[in-house]
Structure formats: structure tokens, C-alpha cells
Amino acid sequence: MGVHININDINLNVFAFEEVTVSSWWNYPNHNSPFARIFMVYDGVQEVRFNGKTYQHKPGHIYIVPPFTNVDYLCNDSCTQFYLILSAELPGYGSIFQLDDIQFEFPITADIQASLRTLLNQVDNVPLQNYNPVSLIYSQDLQQAQIKMSPIDEWQITAIAQLLLTPFLQSLNYEKNESIFFNVTKYIEDNLHQQITLTDLAKQSNLVPSYFSDKFLEHFKLRPMAYLQNKRVEKAQLLLTTTHYNVDIIADMCGFKTSPHFCRVFKNVTALTPKRYRESLLVKTENNNSTG
């Protein structure tokens, strides 16, 4: 039997948030970010597509967009939204938005939405200077956003983020205490920069490697070394987005033996080389909308 996730178990970081009115300039296809997003729509409708599903964002609901996922954003008319860009990591598992069988849409009452809006109006916005995810300053914004927050604002917006995440967390049930893999995933999280073997992972569960690999596959739908590889690539995506480290340094930080090996694995997972992935985040576009 699993246990519900406690908000205090989560490492929560908020990078940007504000209320903004969007329109057709918000149409961005195939965007992949290492950060999650929460949306709450006040007026109008917008559309978000990922993992083969389409979500019509409308008033009366909270919507979550997971990280490391190809997402299409679409707004044909006009829509007033509150957005929040964040990371929420569960030690030993990574992003809570990548757990199995999770929901990304939750209803809220008009009273709760009004109360949240009142709370949000009391906090100074930390907006993006440019909403275009492929603009030159977009990723630079995310690097600097937390620095702009005062301690009081950071405390307030973190509390608001926890409120917004409450229905999401109540829908989750994960096997922290009983899972033989908690120590394994925690070991991976803590040692991504090092070389890790199947034997190393099996030791964390006190199982022989072959049996461990089969049980891991049954639980995660991936073999242990494939899971490890994906986590290395996710860390690389985050570093490519939020730092100016070169490919050699990032390869080493993520535990790849050589830069060519890193580039091959990264392309196999993301369909882009690390250099092209970073360039796709920094390329200037003609339709830069810095004020919405």
C-alpha cells in the first residue's frame, strides 16, 4: 500500500509567475522545457497538447504541463491566464510530474479561484521579459528570475504554488516505503556525475543484478540502465538551458565517459544534438513579444 506525498517532501523552486493576456502570438509548437508549468485561466480559452492529448484550458480548472515533454501551445483568440514556471523534485524520484498515472487537469470552485487571485495580487510578479520559448532572452530570464524575488515574495509565491499543487498531490499515490527501488533512484539522483553499473544499482536493492533488472523493468517500464541514461539526459537538458557550460563540461557533470558518447545518447533521446538543443532555445525569432 502506498502513501500520499507530503508537500514537505518536495524540493519546490519557482522561477517565474504572473497574470497575462495572451493571443495568437502565444502559438508555439513543439516546445520542450526542463521546467513544469501551472496554468489557471480567468477568461477565454487556450489549448495545450502533449503526450497525444489536447487540453482545453478554461476557467474553473488548474492545469499542469510536465517538464521534458514536447508541448504545443495554441490560443486562437484572447485568454487571460496566470502561469507559474517551476520545478518540483521528489528525492529519489525526480520530478513529481513524471510519476506514473498522473492527472494534469483539476477542477476548482469559483470561490477558490477568486481567493487564489486575491493572494496573487498581493505578490509582486516575477514575469518573463519575453514569453517566446525560442527567443534569445527566454532561458536567460529563467536563470535570473529567482534572483529578482525578495525573501518575502519567494515565501509567498512558494505557499501559493503549494496551494495550486494540492489537488495534484492528493491524486498521487507512490510506493515510497514499500518500493525496493527508492534507494536505487535516490542513488542515481545523487551519483549521476559518476560511472554507475548495473551491479551498483542492484546492490542498492539487495537483489542479484538479473532479477533486479527484471523487477525494475516491471515497475518502471524501462531497464535500469535505460532509466539511468534518461536521467543523465534530463540533467543535461537542464544544464544546457540554465548554464553556459560547454558540452565537454556538461558531459562530465552528467556522467558520460566522453563528449561524443554524450552527443550520441542525447540525440537518440531528444532527436537533437546538445548544441542544436541549446541553439533551439536561443535562436531569435521575428515575432518577439516582450510585453504580450
Rank of each mutant, 00 (worst) to 15 (best):
F256E: 01
Q143C: 15
R37E: 07
L142W: 05
L12K: 07
F256T: 03
D124Q: 15
H244K: 10
N51W: 06
L12I: 11
T285K: 14
T291H: 15
Q204P: 02
K215Y: 00
Q144C: 05
F68M: 12
N173T: 11
P224E: 07
Q144W: 02
W25K: 14
S205C: 11
D100T: 04
N32H: 06
N76R: 12
K231A: 09
M40W: 06
A159I: 04
N246G: 11
E154L: 15
L119E: 11
S33W: 01
P127E: 04
N125S: 15
V65K: 08
L239W: 01
T80G: 00
S139I: 07
I96Q: 03
P274L: 11
I250A: 09
I249D: 05
L99Q: 07
R37L: 09
E175F: 04
L86Y: 12
N8K: 11
I180H: 10
D214S: 08
L163K: 14
F256L: 11
T158I: 14
N27G: 03
S115C: 02
L142M: 10
E19F: 14
H244D: 13
L120P: 00
P107R: 01
N230M: 09
M1H: 13
V269L: 10
Y211A: 14
I38T: 07
V3Y: 13
I147N: 13
K203L: 04
N206D: 13
L272W: 12
D190H: 06
F168V: 01
S135Y: 09
T273W: 08
L128I: 09
T285D: 10
R264V: 09
M1V: 14
I152G: 03
S210G: 01
V14L: 01
